[in-house]
């Protein structure tokens, strides 16, 4: 008689492979045989995790079609098993999986679309945070501005792509009814993903503005963020972008380095 540990080990390994012989031997064969019964659980697992991926990556699915998506999901589930009881955490490696997935090589933009959709998913559930009062900055001695370190709102993500991912995403929305053509040779996007009143927005930003935000997000000072931005655009207007990102709730805290 198998102990509980041996049973769960045998059951678990039969779900992750095509071989159910070990567990099938422990299962009553009244009517359907043990292999068939394990196949039901194997199928449940695949359907649950595939549907979870589908919910997070609808644009990837639309781009590749149902059959290819199921094939990709099957491979993904095999190589990146779920590690959590909370399914909202499943699937974050899908973009990097797609970038290595030989069958998807013809769609070089797919991983970036997946990255955008994962950012959307994460931002939807991310923590809340109060906005910064603009007056709090005016109290700072201007000589100290360079040394300020800002914190980004937890519901913000930054990503960039060599492709126009925001347009690819937009033309593949269910309610989009315009021209679906996307010029893949168009300049890539730098994207700030925001949550405003619970809704997710993708804002494309200029490369200098993007460097500015990324440098801040990496924990560097305002001085270094401005230097990084000026490197991209000699006319970068710090005052304009500082006000903009305090007002849109992207910069929510600061302290003196």
């Amino acid at each position: 008689m198998p102990g509980l540990r041996e049973l769960q080990q045998a059951f678990g390994s039969s779900l992750g492979s095509d071989d159910a012989s070990e567990i099938a031997a422990l299962v009553c064969a009244n009517g359907l045989n043990g292999n068939r019964r394990i196949q039901i659980y194997r199928n449940n697992l695949f359907v649950t995790l595939t549907d979870t991926l589908r919910a997070v990556y609808p644009v990837v699915e639309k781009l590749v079609g149902d059959g290819f998506f199921r094939f990709a999901a099957h491979e993904f589930i095999h190589h990146y098993p779920s590690r959590h009881g909370n399914l909202h955490l499943f699937g974050h490696e899908f973009a990097s999986f797609l970038s290595e997935f030989a069958a998807a090589k013809g769609h070089a933009y797919l991983p970036d679309v997946a990255r955008l959709e994962w950012a959307q998913h994460e931002v939807y559930h991310a923590a809340d945070h109060a906005y910064l009062e603009p007056q709090s900055l005016t109290a700072i001695d201007p000589d100290c501005y360079e040394s300020l370190r800002f914190t980004l709102h937890p519901a913000r993500r930054l990503l960039h792509s060599a492709y126009p991912v925001v347009r690819i995403w937009a033309v593949n929305q269910p309610d989009f009814d315009g021209d679906q053509m996307v010029d893949l040779s168009a300049p890539g996007d730098c994207v700030l993903v925001l949550r405003i009143n619970g809704e997710i927005e993708f804002h494309t930003v200029a490369p200098a503005e993007y460097r500015f935000l990324v440098t801040i997000h990496e924990g560097d000072t305002l001085g270094r963020a401005v230097a990084a931005a000026l490197d991209k655009d000699r006319d970068f207007d710090l005052n304009h972008f500082l006000v903009k990102h305090v007002q849109n709730g992207t910069l929510v805290e600061f302290d003196l380095a």
Binding site: M1, G3, L4, L7, Q8, Q9, F11, G12, L15, G16, Y41, N44, L45, T48, L49, T52, P81, S82, R83, H84, G85, L87, F90
Partner: peptide, 20 residues
């Protein structure tokens, strides 16, 4: 049960009905 050795099957898998 739904996990073994850190891997989650995200399903409601049956227990054996034993004293253990």
């Amino acid at each position: 049960w739904s996990s073994f050795n850190g891997r989650y099957f995200n399903d409601l898998l049956p227990l054996p009905y034993t004293p253990e």
